[in-house]
Design a protein around this nucleic acid. Structure first.
Lengths: 338, 338
DNA sequence: CTGTTAGCGCTTTCAC
DNA sequence: GTGAAAGCGCTAACAG
């Protein structure tokens, strides 16, 4: 595993290391004579020279990496945001940003360890798509070292640049839709309450129900995480409630899928027996036998705002930033049209 | 963004930097007096000291990172492998390995850039879940610098440690199942042929059909990538073929989903009109209105083998390694039981 | 058990 | 337009 370094390359060409450095850089190559530059580039290529970016990082003080914290890699919405943000940051002609991706699975301990890793590896910014209220302290601690941006999941009582969806409005939309369709008894399959996202969805839904005179009953179990397996479990509870709700709002599409499964096992059909709505408008939701009514998440807008905030804060950490909330949109499909 | 470094921490405690280094390390802390060690740990904690791992990497010559190349972050199978491998490498009590994840989307150019990044950042190993035949050269070039392990997708004519599934056998299983159910005319929705994986699935299926006297017709379009959208498109072709096949083998579940959509739009039902089988046994396949017959991928085994090969080669790049192929398993569900 | 010393490979002044 | 020299923050040899 013989690696050529700058010193050796310089020696073999009879120039100084600094000339090599300049010739191979994007922003300082104009300081090198055209011929010299070409010679150096060719030689570097031929020798299979790969600059040691850890050395460059050490010297330069910035790494051209960003840390991304995500709670669940199987969640399509998160993946979309990651893709968009990475694309956003990869300005052509610049050093590209390499993402370090860490999956927390909503474990506080894991979040802490990953944040430490990110800071120790001197990422230029951290984007968290995994923030829960319990992470407030470690995230604001991290801002002492590096800009931190929150996306999708905000944390109340912390002032960090944030890009989210108006989840309270989203929850309310579903409740209003249920009311319009004449439902009298409804319930929610809630996501984990450590995340403000789910708290807001719940709040928006409950408030609207109260306002519209719809009775909301509550399952005793709360989903420990927003997955299909959890939805199945809570779903069983829901079916046993009396009076049984005629419409259910699952806090995301994965939970809704679990509920659907439970219903199928129980021989109930959707929407005839129970109407069902999800959240996120993931790809599957349209592919189901009964397409799922869901809340479309403004992924694109959230991603762009998060990406731009990140860019700006990397350029200058003292830059002004703004938090923004984007509007969701109800997509009515067969699962609530009985 | 005031960062304490080792020198300052040492000065404030009246000890040498090397003592700090030892006290904070996992493997050398026993060389430091118990009291001293405790004092140092507490002080480091209190000062919010985060070791600069890029400096440590430079000095140590290894980074405790691995590069993971993946073609599609929305593919559940890949995510599962990533999770398992990362878990496998995170030996407790050791420095944890931080994964650098790069998504190629089957672009050769992107693969090349990501590999360069990985090498330049001095990853300790590279695991590729995105290998296509066109990448043979850049991947073997990379082995000059760092161990490279292939998982899920192998490359023919290249000798690298590989963990894959016997995709030819998987394809054959589907063909045999179709024959048993009495189908006379069948076809495939093939994944992109730049990947040996899909070539093998196709080969296994076609050979078995020939052997069993089942007629296989071929759609003219090949899916440019193995996604639902592509499946939908090829699916339209399939429906227009004469004689129309009565059973279709989609090279993965995403493609199968696309085919299902097309059938629904055309008012055809599965399996009554056309039987359908997928590959991978992803979560959705069981959640569909008509659960999908599919080939269960030995993800667990592939992940473990890839993880262990990686571990071994990180420990010593000259270690012997083996390539292994694991057996898939046919899961028969409603979509082929008319 | 602790300190001293050297150096990992790069970038960046500062000279010329 | 190029070279000389210093130093980013850490770890590992070596000495005691």
């Amino acid at each position: 595993m013989a690696r050529v370094n700058m010193r050796e390359l310089a020696r073999s060409l009879g120039v100084d290391r600094s000339t090599i450095s300049r010739a191979l850089s994007t922003d300082k190559s104009h300081l090198v004579g055209k011929e010299t530059r070409e010679i150096i580039r060719k030689a570097a290529e031929a020798a299979g020279y790969r600059p040691n970016l850890t050395a460059a990082t050490l010297r330069r003080g910035s790494s051209n990496t960003i840390g991304i914290l995500v709670s669940d890699l199987e969640n399509e919405t998160f993946i979309t945001v990651i893709r968009r943000v990475v694309a956003e940051l990869g300005t052509p002609g610049q050093h590209p940003f390499t993402p370090l991706i860490g999956e927390t699975r909503d474990s506080h301990q894991t979040s802490r360890e990953l944040l430490d890793q990110f800071i120790s590896r001197r990422v230029d910014a951290i984007i968290s798509l995994a923030s829960s209220d319990t992470d407030a302290e470690i995230l604001s601690d991290a801002t002492r070292y590096v800009p931190v941006i929150l996306a999708i999941r905000k944390i109340n009582g912390i002032t960090l640049p944030t890009a989210t969806c108006d989840d309270e409005a989203g929850g309310a939309m579903v409740a209003e839709h249920f009311a319009e369709r004449g439902h009298q008894v409804v319930c929610q399959i809630k996501g984990p309450t450590i995340s403000a996202t789910f708290v807001d969805r719940a709040l928006g839904f409950s408030r609207a129900c109260a306002r519209l005179g719809v009775f909301e009953c509550e399952p005793e179990i709360v989903a420990p995480n927003a997955t299909t397996a959890a939805g199945r479990k809570v779903g069983e509870q829901v079916l046993s409630m009396r009076p049984r709700p005629t419409a259910v709002f699952a806090h995301n599409d994965a939970l809704a899928l679990g509920m659907l499964e439970t219903m199928r096992s129980a021989g109930l059909s959707c929407p005839a027996d129970i109407a069902l709505a999800g959240y996120n408008n993931t790809r599957i939701s349209q592919l189901l036998a009964t397409p799922l009514t869901t809340v479309d998440y403004p992924v694109e807008k959230v991603s762009i705002h998060a990406g731009q905030a990140t860019k700006s804060l990397i350029a200058d950490p003292t830059n002004e930033w703004s938090s923004r909330t984007f509007e969701p949109r109800l997509i009515v499909r067969g699962s609530t049209l009985s």
